[in-house]
Computed example of a mutant assay.
Amino acid sequence: MELTTVWFLLIAVLWMGYLVLEGFDFGVGMLTAVLARDEKERRVLLNTIGPVWDGNEVWLLVAGGATFAAFPEWYATLFSGFYLPLLLILVALILRIVGLEYRSKRPEQAWKRRCDVAIVFGSVVPAVLWGVALANIVAGVPIDADKEFVGSVLDLLNPYALLGGLVTLTVFLTHGAIFVALKTVGDIRERSRGFALRVGSVAAVLAVVFVVWTAGRDDSVLVWAAGGVAAATFLMALLATGSRREGWAFTGTALSIAAVTVMLFGSLFPDVMPSSLDPAWSLTTENASSTPYTLTIMTWVAAVFTPVVVGYQAWSYWVFRRRIGTHHIPDDVLIESGTTGASR
């Protein structure tokens, strides 16, 4: 297998990890506005992701760095063409980090409300725009003979891309609600399950339309198979949620998101950014890649450090695996310096 193909697959795996892990982070962030009835419940929700949310974002950083090093032409065209959406995502993620880190630094309710708004905004915007961006990459964008993006932001707001944004929004909400049900006890667990079933039904309809639309454009066995797996595992997740088997439900939504990622990247290959103007002008794994020497060095580095990173993150999830509830939240929480606001 050529190294360009190896790195395309590795980048797909990195995106898969990011969407699966950060997906429930975004979901929980959005749910703080609809599930939490008081300050204690809001802290419970934030505590479910407190120990892991910053580690989940590492997958995005590594995916971006790998794209820059392995496929510099892809990186350059992507960031120039998607400049405004990616800037909005970056601003939203920064606001989300500020809200999570500094929410508990001051006791005033007005301060906490502003942080809550930042958390919700910083979760909704990336949840929608990542779907829009990925759908546009798969569908193709205006790229000229010089491999440069020649369209506008309005070109990115097409029906297929907007549907992709709605799919990621609703699927992440479902994924997050199931994660909350998996990690909590008491009334908030029951409400999370009910919310997951309601929004999951909407997400299932949108996702089926998106899967059929995507597979119909490509019409390959891999894309159809991955789409079928995505639909089946998402249905399994909803059934497991109704049966109060949150572990299986969370596994189902995670597998569904992973299968959709396989479908999207399978539909894309061997292109990395198809041109909607002329297929001959598309960026591919060959014409957008770095030199073989660069890819060889990157492969050795990835082979050494990837298992370490994955092992450490798996260990952190194991350490913080227990359920929590409002009874774990003290009535008076002292504000201590040097602690993460989302972890209390």
Rank of each mutant, 00 (worst) to 15 (best):
residue 277 L to K: 06
residue 276 S to R: 11
residue 174 T to D: 06
residue 146 D to M: 13
residue 299 T to F: 04
residue 131 G to E: 00
residue 286 E to F: 07
residue 77 T to V: 13
residue 13 V to R: 07
residue 95 L to I: 03
residue 163 L to W: 08
residue 103 R to I: 14
residue 90 L to T: 13
residue 119 I to M: 07
residue 315 W to I: 12
residue 234 F to H: 05
residue 189 R to A: 12
residue 190 E to P: 02
residue 145 A to W: 09
residue 139 A to K: 13
residue 197 L to N: 01
residue 84 L to K: 08
residue 50 G to D: 05
residue 30 M to R: 00
residue 6 V to H: 06
residue 113 R to L: 14
residue 287 N to K: 03
residue 337 S to E: 15
residue 185 V to Y: 09
residue 151 G to D: 02
residue 321 R to M: 10
residue 287 N to F: 05
residue 196 A to S: 02
residue 78 L to K: 05
residue 159 P to W: 09
residue 32 T to I: 11
residue 92 A to Y: 01
residue 226 A to T: 01
residue 197 L to K: 00
residue 215 A to P: 02
residue 341 G to R: 10
residue 67 T to I: 07
residue 239 L to C: 03
residue 114 R to I: 12
residue 94 I to N: 06
residue 187 D to N: 13
residue 201 S to Q: 02
residue 332 D to N: 13
residue 95 L to V: 06
residue 83 Y to I: 09
residue 49 I to E: 05
residue 37 R to D: 12
residue 175 H to Q: 07
residue 15 W to Y: 08
residue 285 T to P: 04
residue 328 H to Y: 11
residue 238 L to P: 01
residue 14 L to D: 07
residue 226 A to D: 01
residue 308 V to Q: 05
residue 3 L to W: 03
residue 169 L to Y: 07
residue 242 G to R: 12
residue 85 P to T: 15
residue 185 V to Q: 11
residue 12 A to C: 12
residue 4 T to D: 12
residue 140 G to C: 11
residue 124 V to D: 05
residue 77 T to P: 05
residue 322 R to F: 14
residue 5 T to M: 08
residue 302 A to H: 13
residue 265 F to Q: 04
residue 30 M to C: 00
residue 308 V to N: 07
residue 163 L to D: 07
residue 211 V to I: 14
residue 161 A to G: 09
residue 237 A to R: 02
residue 49 I to G: 06
residue 275 S to P: 05
residue 303 A to F: 11
residue 243 S to E: 15
residue 27 G to D: 01
residue 294 T to P: 09
residue 12 A to L: 11
residue 119 I to G: 09
residue 300 W to I: 11
residue 328 H to N: 15
residue 163 L to Y: 07
residue 224 W to L: 04
residue 305 F to A: 14
residue 255 L to T: 08
residue 287 N to A: 01
residue 51 P to V: 11
residue 311 G to R: 10
residue 143 I to N: 10
residue 72 P to R: 08
residue 158 N to S: 03
residue 255 L to N: 08
residue 12 A to R: 09
residue 209 V to I: 12
residue 248 W to F: 15
residue 41 E to H: 01
residue 281 W to N: 15
residue 136 N to Q: 01
residue 98 V to M: 10
residue 53 W to Y: 12
residue 247 G to K: 14
residue 11 I to M: 11
residue 257 I to E: 04
residue 253 T to P: 15
residue 219 D to N: 15
residue 202 V to Y: 05
residue 81 G to T: 06
residue 53 W to T: 10
residue 230 A to Y: 06
residue 116 D to M: 08
residue 72 P to H: 08
residue 265 F to W: 13
residue 7 W to A: 04
residue 323 R to L: 08
residue 152 S to Y: 10
residue 235 L to M: 02
residue 209 V to E: 03
residue 255 L to A: 15
residue 254 A to L: 05
residue 168 T to G: 08
residue 20 V to Q: 02
residue 2 E to N: 15
residue 137 I to R: 00
residue 102 Y to Q: 09
residue 112 K to H: 09
residue 24 F to N: 03
residue 39 E to G: 09
residue 95 L to N: 05
residue 169 L to I: 08
residue 242 G to Y: 10
residue 326 T to E: 15
residue 86 L to P: 07
residue 305 F to S: 12
residue 211 V to W: 00
residue 96 R to Y: 05
residue 297 I to G: 02
residue 317 Y to F: 10
residue 176 G to Q: 04
residue 47 N to T: 07
residue 47 N to W: 04
residue 155 D to P: 01
residue 241 T to M: 04
residue 120 V to N: 00
residue 250 F to T: 10
residue 340 T to V: 13
residue 10 L to Q: 12
residue 240 A to Y: 01
residue 295 L to A: 09
residue 220 S to D: 12
residue 205 V to M: 00
